[in-house]
Design a protein around this nucleic acid. Sequence first.
RNA 1: GUCCCUGUAGUUCAACGGAUAGAACGACUCCCUUCUAAGGAGUAGAUCUGGGUUCGAUUCCUAGCAGGGACACCA
Length: 556
Amino acid sequence: MTIQHRVKEFIQAVTLNTVDFKLEVPTQASFGHYSTNLALVLAKKEGKSSLEVAKELVDKLEKADDGKLFKKIEVAGPGFVNFWLNPEVLATEFKKFNPEKLPKSGNKEKVIIEFSSPNIAKPMHVGHLRSTIIGDSLARIYEALNFRVIRWNYLGDWGTQFGKLIAAYKKWGSEESLEKDPINHLLQLYVRFTKEIEGDKDLEQLGRDEFKKLEDGNKENRKLWKKFRQLSLREFAKTYSNLGIKKFKIEKGESDYQKNLPGVVKELKEKNIAKKSEGALIIELKDLPPALIQKSDGASLYFTREIAALEDRSAQAQKIFYVVGNEQSLHFQQLQAVSELIKLPIKIEHIKYGLVLNEEGKKISTRKGEAIQLSELLDKAVEKAKIIVSKKNPSLKEDQINSIANAVGIGAIKFNDLKENRVSDIRFDWDKMLDINGDSGPYLQYTYARLNSILQKGGKQANNAEELKENMEISIVKKLLDFPDVVMLCQESNLTSHLAKHLLDLAHTLNSYYESVPVLSAPKDKKSARLYLVKKANQVLEAGLCLLGIDTPGQI
RNA sequence: GUCCCUGUAGUUCAACGGAUAGAACGACUCCCUUCUAAGGAGUAGAUCUGGGUUCGAUUCCUAGCAGGGACACCA
């Protein structure tokens, strides 16, 4: 159990669990280690003066604690109660502190995290980046807290667009170009096709016909589609490897649910959930626009496949998190509504994030071929990092430089997204994306490397937590001990930004600490305590960055 | 047109109904003969506009204004 939990339980016991209150780590050190609004809540409920209630509360708490857990409990501001832990309590906790061991709050609950979800035959672009790295990080966090996580890549591998693509390939495609650079060749075909549709409306119909043939099992179309899919997956695997994304447990696409569709449609009809409208089959929903599940020509739609996929998922987990952009809010509201109608035993949560807009602030269109490819972005980031690494640290060998540049470049990109809780859209900005100064991933990697360097020189003597008496040291100890609570907060809120901010805050304090306090040249009694602090701090940085999917090179 | 999201320093973002609205970048001062200056110590600088609820509103409600997104045979 973390200290924060102990404190909360203590307060609950004293107040006999009668009200809901918050216990938080205040932003300012002068407000103590923990702070609660309990007195304010109580005062409101009972119509009393908040300061009086707070004073009574402090008396009660002090009597019950008798100086065991707390050094000081104090009323502050409009009626907050602030707590300062006993230094001995901190020291005892710190001695046995191990950031690798997080609370097992997940209790092996099964959750599906669906993320990344690229479209076959199209390059992954910056839009997929957010889903991929947020999803990967959340999965790591859930896993660390003992949830059973199913990482699911739901591939966009079915639909009319493949009819268009097949039509385009038959018209202009080349086997040679397909082998050489599959995704770009397919992209070019697709872009050309959508362009020519504007001047030739028959093409539109041709695309639909080819898709219908694919759905009906036409051999040639089936073969082409399989090939496109296979080649695309190979390309995606490269990108995931470059990004350091852990392996997906399941890579099932829309096509995998094709065979379930007649059953799903039949069931929806029989239960009178779906009905005909303007030739198509729809589900009417309360307070929402209707969901379309079958075209007038009988072909399936995205939504139908989603229902089939959800049925499959509900057999495997109690909860599913869709890490998908804001733009699909309506879709998931509809899915949620349908899930309730057919009574699927699974909880749905849409983890949304803002779109990445182009430099003019408009939605990026893949059809027009203007998307920035993910591989291009990653290459640029690593290249930029390489220039900096070789300048800062010229004595390194070539392969060391490459591996550090990789960690730093990718780390910069990932942290940039993970530190923010953006539901509003963001404008794509090369400089911002690749920034390594200030509040960035590389700043944390730099801090890690510096601490690591100290430990290389004297780490063996790190074995004593007793002598940490300076204010800054106690404040660092407290921040380190907060780490498990922060990870749990990320899980509860599905936000990685809490962890990112916590690590930044820790790193700032650490940089300031070793700037002013010598470690290796400290007097003997203090040296081993300071080394112990450095060692634990580094473990937290390493564990925290790992949860964000960011590497920590020993030197940079 | 309807619905959803967002509006905080010059810029990009924090703030769980509460305490003196926090950072970073950029600007300006300082600090490398001391464990990596990818750093540290400072200065200046902000809640879109009305109304309301509350002891207390950046946060909740409401009416505007501004930007973005979604809304039937795309995924």
